[in-house]
Design a protein around this nucleic acid. Structure first.
Lengths: 210, 210
DNA sequence: AGACAATGCCGTAAAATGGGTGATTATTAA
DNA sequence: TTAATAATCACCCATTTTACGGCATTGTCT
């Protein structure tokens, strides 16, 4: 049976060949319809309210505003629109910036018919389409470093610091004296080579100690 | 052609039926061999060095030590072993705890033949097998809140605070006076209802403001 | 005109940092 | 078994950084 409504797809991509190719693939599906194709974010954003896309296929490298910034603006103005990044690179920094901006999927430009429509279906089902490598990158991002220089107690205290606790609160929570907290924290600072709580938190996140 | 070595798989699962079922499925593949099945983490860990598994299928709810803690110990003693969590629940807290512990995949107990072997293959290829919902949960975890109460400048400063910068460093970096940094930070604290840098960082992470 | 954002200054008190010194107990590793 | 490490506690002093209060100016946008 035919679906009552096709999901509306917007394509933002500066390479006309890829744009047309993607457009053909998307329109070939019974479940999707292309409501607009643009060569840059500025034009896409101008037509956002008219096109009302449920899904945006967004290139990252674009003339003018890049796809990350564009995603941010689109998500800001249209919360329910899902953005899938389309890119040649699988650079770590870019992936996380795109996710922060609000992207919910990440596919490569080399995506074929099956992969592209698969990603769209996956998004509609509430999933997050991405390549193996991206998935792994995101998962690894959550792993904590098993080679922490800190002791168990120090790690506990660093955890409490990251929760915004003061010396006094830490000592109360762990049933130790304030002086002991100070000693531990001094040792933590020395091991991490930092000299403030917020620096320690930053280092802890960098090195995934907590 | 046949592969020279089958990948070694360990199964930790207290339900004997599921254990046997998974064991049969894994052994039915040319690419994998079950080297040990255990009903709890303690036994599994005792035999870790003998079994030398490349992959562990780990239940979360287990008698004695739970699967999260078990994963932590296994990853600690055998860095190159990949752990895939097998569970009935898709609870957010548990997922992230499992990831922190070092799990690289997350499948459900209802997984059939294809799904189970698919997950093993995916892990071997360097991917991170997981259900749509889990993938989405992890991706959403990275999205920043578009409804931040902070202004652009305040967000910038909060970002610098989270990097461990002092008032002086912030003012130097933004070419403003130290007093201005102080004012901005006062306003940030007031809006976030906190009263220290580390609390502000904690709140920022909770609310995904940066 | 009014609201808000961004900038700047003053002053006080509290909190955190840095350095040192010394100690007891328990666990772990060699 | 001995040595090393971890975890606990205490005190000193000095300095720096923060936190909290109020107040003022400038510019922008509505």
């Amino acid at each position: 049976m035919a679906l009552p409504f096709k999901k509306r797809v917007m394509i933002v991509e500066d390479d006309q060949e890829i744009r047309n190719s993607f457009s053909l693939i998307v329109n070939s599906s019974q479940r999707f319809v292309v409501v607009g194709t643009y060569g840059n974010c500025e034009d896409a954003i101008s037509n956002l309210m008219r096109d009302k896309p449920e899904i945006v296929l967004m290139d990252i490298e674009l003339p003018g505003m890049n796809g990350i910034k564009g995603t941010q603006i689109i998500k800001d103005r249209s919360h329910n629109t899902e953005v899938i990044m389309v890119t040649v690179y699988e650079d770590s920094e870019m992936v996380f910036d795109a996710l922060k901006a609000g992207a919910s999927g990440y596919i490569t430009k080399s995506a074929n018919y099956m992969e592209l429509l698969g990603a769209l279906d996956e998004i509609i089902r509430g999933g997050a389409p991405m390549s193996s490598r991206i998935a792994r990158m995101v998962i690894d991002h959550h792993h904590v470093n098993p080679n922490s220089p800190l002791t168990k107690r120090e790690t506990t205290i660093l955890q409490l610091i990251s929760e915004g606790k003061t010396y006094t609160q830490i000592s109360e929570e762990l049933f130790i004296s304030k002086e002991t907290s100070k000693t531990h924290i001094k040792n933590i600072y020395s091991k991490l080579q930092v000299n403030s709580k917020s620096e320690a938190i930053a280092k802890a996140n960098e090195e995934k100690l907590i």
